[in-house]
Write a protein that binds this DNA or RNA. Sequence first.
DNA 1: GTAATAGTGTCTTTTAGACAGTATCGA
DNA 2: TCGATACTGTCTAAAAGACACTATTAC
Lengths: 239, 239
Amino acid sequence: MTYKHDKYSHTRPNVGVTITPFIYKDGKIKVLLYKRSKNAEVFKNQFCLPNRFFDITEFNTAEDAANFALEEKTNVKIPHLTQFKTFSGLEIDPSRIATVNICYYSILREDEVFSIEKEQPFETYWVDVEKALNEDLAFNHNEVLELAYKRLKASAEYTAEPVHFLPVKFTISELRELTSLLIGQNLDNSRYRDRIKKSGVLTECVGERRKSANRPPQLYTYNYEYEGFFYPKSLTKHS
Amino acid sequence: MTYKHDKYSHTRPNVGVTITPFIYKDGKIKVLLYKRSKNAEVFKNQFCLPNRFFDITEFNTAEDAANFALEEKTNVKIPHLTQFKTFSGLEIDPSRIATVNICYYSILREDEVFSIEKEQPFETYWVDVEKALNEDLAFNHNEVLELAYKRLKASAEYTAEPVHFLPVKFTISELRELTSLLIGQNLDNSRYRDRIKKSGVLTECVGERRKSANRPPQLYTYNYEYEGFFYPKSLTKHS
DNA sequence: GTAATAGTGTCTTTTAGACAGTATCGA
DNA sequence: TCGATACTGTCTAAAAGACACTATTAC
């Protein structure tokens, strides 16, 4: 890409993206942090979330930059990305001019991220989210992580977005346990099944059941046709 | 503010803010559009939403830029602003390099905006939102308006945000009619009152009733202490 | 009194919540 | 057989939905 300085270039803020990558593993939500280099300009040796400058000689969109930053740290090529807020101000990166920080969270499947430590080109760690919230992270990443986790939990209240944590085919019990974890409450098995069935949000994989040491559970997939609230009980009548 | 060119300045995208200002008037939702000048670099004479470049010699944050752009067109100094999405790409402003577009909608009260046409320093119009959606707007403003309106309507499903359309003191019937308009469904009077009362989202203005040619209705204010969903019926048990 | 809107009460249907009970596998 | 988890049924409580009814004002 060729580009010349223009009369406006010095009036533009820095723009970067930050991604909060989540996985669901061992019954817990974990978030990816990496340790900044000891030679970094600022926040040396501190932990932070994957991030990248939106450099227009490299990327056309913020999503491109986000995908790049995420793949670099996780090896995932087609991530589930949700943009949740754009921060801006002088405090985000004290070493630079006013900064704009476009933030995403990403719901990843345990089996698609780097599995072996030494495969990882950076010093990255999947940290329990509750523990990560207590770390002193670089930049504004404490604020970013806090809001990302809040939004993730909220999404479990009224959407089926958390299915992206699970394998393509999963059981209702698996989804119920995950949802229960995110909303912090037990969910009645019977009621949960009723609502799932009535909502049409999942499609039954006819004839496919998981092998197990008990009655084999029915497998389902997420119905991408499904629009709207997962739990559509709100203000209005839903027939 | 003093600032020098640095080695990164030519790699930064343009950053701008776009605001979708809504009011509720004559039983309809209206949006503010203005006509671009016939001397504009691009999209001459076309309608668009209030917008502004995020020029760091003028503003420290995107919110500052949004407030400026909104006050310029509406005269409102402390607006209710909700950020809903940041767009980016080459197509937003074809005359420039890659652009980042931080978008807000604003819920305004009819009585706080410029009331007299000639007071307005720009050629602005409050247009019925359904009509505005059919206009051919400048930049990506069709997409912006569409999503802004969608998010506004969604907010009425599970939050009390639309109270910001109403005067500080209002009646339950007024809120019900507004909500009904936004969600596109009739709401049962009795049920609606029950839910409002139980939720604690409104505070009764004790002893204050509006004068009218019928039984005078009780006035309420929004309870800023209220946290969470307006209509908290979703997945979980709510006692 | 009437007209008009505010606000309440009551009945039926639907959904939630709790939990008992049956199903189906491996060992 | 037993143990374990999948799944279904049933009962009660609570909420939604529909709509009739009463209240309070101006005239």
